[in-house]
């Protein structure tokens, strides 16, 4: 009788979503990622309320090491601004750019990939040539050019990152569409007279979502690294305090004070790590077959 009970349990847990959630909760990478991201988000959004010091304000002598002055528990930068205040206030811009740029990347990537994979033929040929062209341009240099030509505001930066990083998503989406478009349920939808647009967005896309969600999570992490890189090169928005800006400003002073760049860099590292661990966890959840690798 015990064997029968087991069978019933298996049948009950077959909702794909519930199955995925269960698998995600079993993946240590995914759960650790969620934990890290929760801490980062708490630090970024609740931090300024608990520690309302202006990150632009000069509070102590320049380049004070951590633990010396009470006004600056984590030390000061080359102007004497409080590092802890910078860490607390610098996260929201970084997260914002990461999310917006990630969204733009995914949107362009899905549009291009979906049309290429669905219509194939000439459309595919053309769109893939464009994708290939964008992959030839070194992404960071292209983003640097865009931001330099069109003023470094937080919106231009997010848009530039999106413009340079969509090809990977496009290729992924295209591959998924090519695979799914000839499956039986797509033929079934077509046979009852569904139009192309309906088949693309309502039939194929939902079935291609699993790898795209994983890709989206990783894309946010990559976009955050991009923003950090641009800020480091002095192409961040000078009016918005961000972790990348802190590193860029402290670049010349690494040998005078390790904390100036180490701490904001560590925050970026933690955030990106959180996103990539969640991506790993989602991958495990959606691809049970790959879990052993």
């Amino acid at each position: 009788m015990a064997a029968v009970d087991n069978n019933i349990q298996i049948v009950q847990s077959q909702s794909p979503l519930r199955e995925a959630v269960r698998a995600f909760r079993q993946s240590w990478a995914g759960m650790l990622g969620i934990l890290i991201l929760t801490l980062v988000i708490l630090f970024t959004f609740a931090g300024p309320l608990v520690y309302p010091v202006d990150p632009f304000e000069i509070v102590w002598a320049p380049l004070t090491p951590p633990g010396v002055a009470e006004q600056a528990p984590l030390g000061t930068d080359y102007l004497g601004r409080d590092i802890l205040a910078g860490l607390v206030h610098g996260g929201s811009a970084t997260l914002y750019v990461g999310l917006v740029a990630g969204f733009i990347t995914i949107t362009i990537g899905i549009l291009v990939g979906a049309f290429a994979g669905f219509y194939r033929g000439f459309v595919d040929e053309f769109l893939m040539r464009v994708t290939e062209f964008f992959q030839v341009l070194p992404a960071l240099l292209f983003a640097m050019v865009l931001v330099t030509l069109f003023s470094p505001t937080i919106y231009v930066i997010a848009l530039a990152i999106g413009i340079v990083s969509w090809p990977t998503t496009a290729r992924l989406t295209r591959a998924e569409f090519l695979r799914i478009r000839s499956l039986e349920y797509v033929n079934a939808a077509r046979s009852i007279g569904a139009r192309n647009q309906r088949i693309i967005w309502r039939v194929i896309l939902p079935n291609a979502l699993a790898p795209l969600i994983v890709a989206a999570t990783l894309t946010i992490g990559i976009a955050i690294l991009f923003e950090a890189g641009l800020s480091f090169l002095g192409l961040g928005d000078p009016n918005v305090f961000s972790w990348g800006l802190m590193i860029g400003a402290g670049r010349e002073y690494i040998l005078d004070g390790w904390w100036v760049v180490t701490l904001p860099g560590f925050m970026i590292f933690l955030t990106v790590l959180g996103f990539s661990l969640v991506g790993d966890g989602l991958n495990d959840a959606f691809n049970p077959k790959l879990r052993e690798r």
């Binding site: 992490g221 690294l225 950090a228 890189g229 480091f232 990348g244 590193i247 670049r251 690494i254 040998l255 390790w258 760049v261 180490t262 860099g265 560590f266 970026i268 590292f269 990106v272 790590l273 990539s276």
Partner: peptide, 22 residues
């Protein structure tokens, strides 16, 4: 691979600078 994937490359470089300068 976790570190290489998540740490900003310029930050890794600076950490090496600190390590190999001091």
């Amino acid at each position: 691979s976790v570190i290489g994937y998540s740490a900003p490359i310029f930050w890794t470089g600076m950490m090496l600078v600190i390590l190999f300068a001091w």
